[in-house]
Write a protein that binds this DNA or RNA. Structure first.
Lengths: 252, 252
DNA sequence: GTCTGTGAAGGGCTTCACAGCT
DNA sequence: AGCTGTGAAGCCCTTCACAGAC
């Protein structure tokens, strides 16, 4: 959201007052968009020409070409003036910057419907994220096999997680259990948490949390839907292939 | 952002150049946060005192009190100087502004695991969103009963959706089917779409799209995790209850 | 001529700090 | 004295427009 920021945040969102995103010196908004460029680059790598202009990439990603060029310029010179960008080279560069080159190990905490579906359906593996363990609080779920892993009890987090050494934890527990589990994860030295809870988790400053709140997304849409018909935009009429006005959770 | 920060992510994200969010004159960033204040207000309404100060609300929501006060000031005077905010009154006001007071009808397009889980597990109903129909592209799923509804074929969208008159569609189809279904929804006059696809949907300017891309969220975390240990933040050490640095999809 | 890379301009959002009400 | 509401300052980011490389 985005996050968004921008999308936003957004998804881009509120709380880190001004620190950017701590790596190098990339604007947070740029980091968000870099992640959005990746699937577009993958698409071009498969079907498109080897060299592509900023305008084409920008349209496909739904941003302006000026924004895209400036984003990429933060990573150094990646294109050739008068020509364009080498798709595969650029793709590698973006993956590098986002820290995706080394692969990532993650655990799932909360193996009920939501958590189970998330890890099974979201193409994590195909994007280089390896599931290395599953935990749950519910005794009827603990011991079951999910996505190839035996579900362990959350109480075992302190013993097991340090050995698994995941860089990311996906947290999909009910709201009232989330903070306690989060504390365990933090104590076990997990640095990044992707949370699907409805509450804001309290964490030390060194831990990065991203929250995906689906009901909140609906509420934001609700606001857009309640708008007064926006005659100006409607007058523009037909089809805008630039896909203006899309947001990422965290913004579309 | 998400997010948004944005992107939000959030979101708060990229594409609408400067139009704000079209309703009244609220900054997009403020709308995002208003949605985040709601669960906090609900919590206070149940357990807290009837009157609460901006600082308390801000800490619970993970923003600065100045930001919260300015956000609320966009809605007019909602508090009492020297005293604080009336929780239930404020809550109603925020729900009003977000267009949540009337209730919303939504349809699900894509009834495979992900879509099914989303509508069942995300507390939509308890937040005032009523599911009024389900569609899918897969012949083996069409005709099945999901969440109390018989799944209809996506081809029937043009016939059925106008009668259902949903304000929102939740789109959880595979990427390669998403754009076609999206076009049908737009033709059927759906104004708001919550998309779980990996691609950016092309829509006319009058249609609002929010995208939740779970793998992208992981990638953003990956960037945060790759940071150079951030000694400054680590030195701060212990526990920051202000929960600094959380993001919403779109940003946490 | 084409398209990238980038200083500069402009705008939106956050933060500050305080005036004003209770 | 306490806390809200808000101008003003400052920051970050997007957009513009063009210089520079091919």
């Amino acid at each position: 959201m985005t996050e968004e920021h921008g999308a936003p945040s957004g998804a881009s969102e509120a709380l880190r007052p001004k620190t950017r995103m701590r790596n190098r010196d990339l604007p947070a908004a740029t980091v968000h968009r870099l992640a959005r460029y990746l699937p577009v680059l993958a698409e071009f790598a498969e079907r498109g020409p080897a060299i592509v202009a900023s305008e084409e990439l920008a349209v496909a990603a739904g941003v302006s070409s000026a924004t895209l060029r400036k984003d990429l310029s933060f990573l150094g010179a990646n294109g050739v003036r008068g020509v364009g960008y080498d798709v595969t080279r650029l793709r590698r560069r973006v993956e590098d910057v986002l820290g995706l080159s080394d692969g990532h190990r993650f655990i799932l905490v909360g193996a009920a419907n939501l958590g189970r579906t998330l890890v099974e359906a979201s193409g994590f593996r195909q994007r280089g994220f390896a599931l290395v363990g599953i935990f749950d609080d519910d005794p009827t779920v603990v011991g079951q096999r999910v996505a190839g892993w035996v579900v362990r009890d959350v109480a075992e987090v302190p013993d097991i997680v340090p050995r698994l050494a995941p860089t990311i934890a996906v947290l999909a527990l009910p709201d009232d259990l989330a903070q306690a589990a989060c504390d365990e994860l933090v104590a076990a030295d997990v640095q990044c948490i992707l949370s699907f809870c409805g509450i804001a988790l309290k964490v030390p400053p060194a831990v990065e949390v991203r929250r995906v709140d689906l009901a909140m997304e609906m509420q934001l849409l609700s606001f857009a839907g309640a708008r007064p018909a926006d005659t100006a935009a409607a007058a523009v009429g037909a089809w805008n292939p630039v896909a203006a006005r899309q947001r990422s959770v965290v913004s579309q």
